[in-house]
């Protein structure tokens, strides 16, 4: 089997997809996910229209609904991906099937990529299933397809990043439960605490006229800021947190692609480390 064939038609990925889609759980999750997003959209619409006459074109309402849905989707993905990915390798180890996989002709890299695709593939499926809900906002106007495309790109990178982090813990830690706890712990802590560090860096501890550049790490590694910069108004107002150093709109908007670039580097590094961890003949014990 050529290496290329192994990546394109990855048996690990295909098996996981087959097994996952066999039960009612997968369609159930999709329905629940889209339902929650839809419900949120309706609630925000109702709140925004309170006391107003319904009108056909309401860009303000559309932008608010879009911002809320975009952030809510990010929260759902942060909750979903570690749960899907953190057990991937630790689970094989616990089930005592990892050795059987590693003695086949699949390389450890193919196993890791297969696991990543299987775990993140379902999250991406959830994301794409939610497109009709986002499509409803077109009725109101207020955001462009360009912004939707950028947001989708940030989502895809974020899902891969969350998957790579979770998979790394899955390879490092022996038990699924520990790996899941560690992945959720690190991801949610970073997403929640990095804005706080940003505030402390740029508005409390350092001189606002000469702020430290390294503090931008908190912006460029947080998916919420990447998404905010990609989604445009009103979400992009979040990026004003870094205005002392990112003083122009262009610099603040650039957060999205810088976030994607750094995320891709982290993904590559983590996947490489994960492959090293499961490589049977690599480390001398």
């Amino acid at each position: 089997m050529s290496a290329r064939w192994g990546f394109v038609r990855n048996p690990v990925f295909l098996r996981e997809v087959r097994v996952r889609m066999r039960s009612w759980r997968a369609p159930g999750l999709i329905v629940l996910y889209v339902g929650l997003l839809g419900l949120l959209a309706v609630l925000i619409f109702a709140a925004a229209m309170q006391g107003s006459e319904p009108v056909g074109f309401a860009p303000g309402v559309g932008a608010i609904i879009y911002a809320a849905l975009a952030m809510f989707q990010l929260v759902l993905l942060v909750l979903a991906v570690p749960g899907l990915a953190a057990g991937a390798i630790a689970g094989e180890r616990e089930r005592q099937t990892l050795d059987l996989l590693l003695v086949t002709r699949l390389s450890p890299a193919q196993v890791v990529v297969g696991k990543l695709l299987a775990a993140t593939g379902f999250a991406l499926l959830l994301m794409f299933a939610s497109l009709p809900v986002f499509g409803l906002i077109f009725l109101f106007g207020g955001f462009s397809l360009y912004r939707l495309g950028l947001s989708a790109l940030v989502y895809v990178v974020t899902v891969l990043l969350l998957g790579a982090v979770s998979l790394y813990f899955s390879a490092v830690l022996r038990r699924t439960q520990t790996a899941v706890v560690a992945a959720y712990g690190v991801i949610t802590t970073w997403i929640l605490l990095s804005p706080l560090f940003g505030v402390l860096t740029y508005h409390v501890f350092f001189d606002r006229t000469n702020p430290p550049v390294w503090g931008l790490l908190f912006a460029y590694t947080n998916p919420a800021f990447g998404l905010a910069a990609a989604a445009g108004q009103p979400l992009s107002e979040l990026t004003w947190l870094y205005s002392p150093i990112l003083s122009t709109d262009a610099a603040r908007e650039a957060i999205w692609w810088k976030y994607c670039l750094i995320a891709l580097l982290i993904i590559g590094l983590l996947l490489w480390r994960t492959v090293q961890r499961i490589q049977p003949l690599k480390a001398k014990e």
Binding site: P11, L14, V19, E94, R95, Q96, T97, L100, R105
Partner: peptide
């Protein structure tokens, strides 16, 4: 000496899976 199997997989699929893994 100790090994596990995957849930929700039929015998034929199990064999097909490893046949895939071995190319």
């Amino acid at each position: 000496d100790f090994f596990g199997v995957y849930d929700n997989l039929k015998v034929n699929e199990y064999m097909q899976f490893y046949a895939d893994c071995y190319g």
